[in-house]
Write a protein that binds this DNA or RNA. Structure first.
Lengths: 217, 217
DNA sequence: GTCTATAGTCGGATAGAC
DNA sequence: GTCTATCCGACTATAGAC
């Protein structure tokens, strides 16, 4: 844990988080990690390679940390509450701000992009699991691609993280409205069997119509 | 339009879009704009100030360009379709990738943050308008803070833009699932009056319960 | 593995000629 | 308003002593 490689990996995460992709460099990382600047190149070859390794390192760590809490979720509401908690915990300690910075950097850096996709993919896989579990026996699972939903949710989460950095109140309001929305969905789940059957019938009929063609399997 | 100031504003946008915040500099912007590097400081004082001005410039231009199309939207489905079109058009020509880069930069640069918040705010205002119009007479407008929803949607949109940069297929899947989701909501809007009354009643009863306290006006 | 030193490049910003 | 020239700090990366 105290070896130089690890110090550099965690120094890279901390630097990305607190200084952003624009000012993250071998020198700033080494300063944060408390090691010599040349060691970045000895251990990782280049700054980009260090960043890629650091993201993987951080995502593995963090996803593992949340796994039991994801596993305990049994409703959409609980999932959103976990999301809110995660949002706050990660802002202080973690990996989401890093993910956002790496995503920004990856738009124009082909060496960063695959690592970022993999890091985000770990969160997506976790979310896909939970969503599949929580939404089973709801119209959502039947009529909406849950994997797509998981991807949309992960991307949205990163967007909210970035948004919070420039408008804290606005982000809080956004999060609150999503909770109201999830209450609405929860209540629909609890509708009587007759109503549910009606909804389901309508959806099935509608699916036959236009735009059913561009829906993925 | 051909004057130096404008060239710099548009050069800044283009540079942010194609090179990202990490490699955007007075020199790279000036090269893109085809003007001398020292003019950045003569006209705008600093790089940050130029970026702030450029974002405002671009957001005004782009929001105005889409205003009539936003105004023509009459359903959630249409709104999502406009979102998809906007997503594709802006990727080539515009302001959304810039917004994402500025958001990333703003997390750790206090000079950039207010300008970014203002630029994003223009899109939020537009969205809030349309959503208010489209959702009127639905349970959503009554039980969910539409302004919060607009903020969540704008943030999510930026997140999707970033996500697309590292996983094009995943982003497409995310967008498709949102369209499926909007179909579902649309159909709920079309439920018979009896069912609607049931839903509304349930929501009203539920609102009295726990967590009604942290809901914004 | 870790350090110093350094090459060579690029960055923000300014001074001063035109 | 625009240009050249320049200061000086920060950057990636490497060579070579320890």
């Amino acid at each position: 844990m105290g070896d130089t490689r690890t110090k550099l990996l965690e120094g890279a995460l901390e630097t990305l988080r607190t200084q952003g992709i624009a000012t993250t460099s071998a020198r700033s990382i080494a300063a944060t990690a408390g090691v010599n600047q040349a060691l970045v190149f000895y251990h990782f070859g280049s700054v980009d390679d260090l960043l890629a390794a650091a993201l993987r390192h951080g995502a593995e760590q963090r996803v593992a940390l949340y796994r039991t809490r994801f596993a305990a979720v049994t409703s959409l509401r609980e999932l959103l509450e976990l999301g809110r908690a995660l949002h706050e915990e990660e802002r202080a300690a973690g990996n989401l701000a890093v993910l956002a910075q790496m995503l920004a950097g990856s738009q124009t850096d082909d060496k960063l992009a695959p690592a970022t996709a993999a890091g985000l993919g770990m969160w997506v896989a976790e979310l896909e699991d939970v969503l599949g579990r929580v939404l089973v026996d709801t119209p959502l699972a039947e009529f909406v691609d849950v994997g797509g939903l998981a991807r949309a949710a992960a991307a949205a989460f990163v967007g909210l993280e970035l948004y919070e950095g420039v408008d804290k109140d606005g982000a809080e309001r956004a999060l609150a409205s999503l909770e109201q929305l999830s209450d609405l969905v929860t209540l629909l789940e609890e509708l009587g069997p007759l109503t549910r059957r009606t909804v389901r019938g309508r959806l099935r009929r509608a699916r036959g119509n236009a735009r059913g063609d561009d829906v993925r399997p």
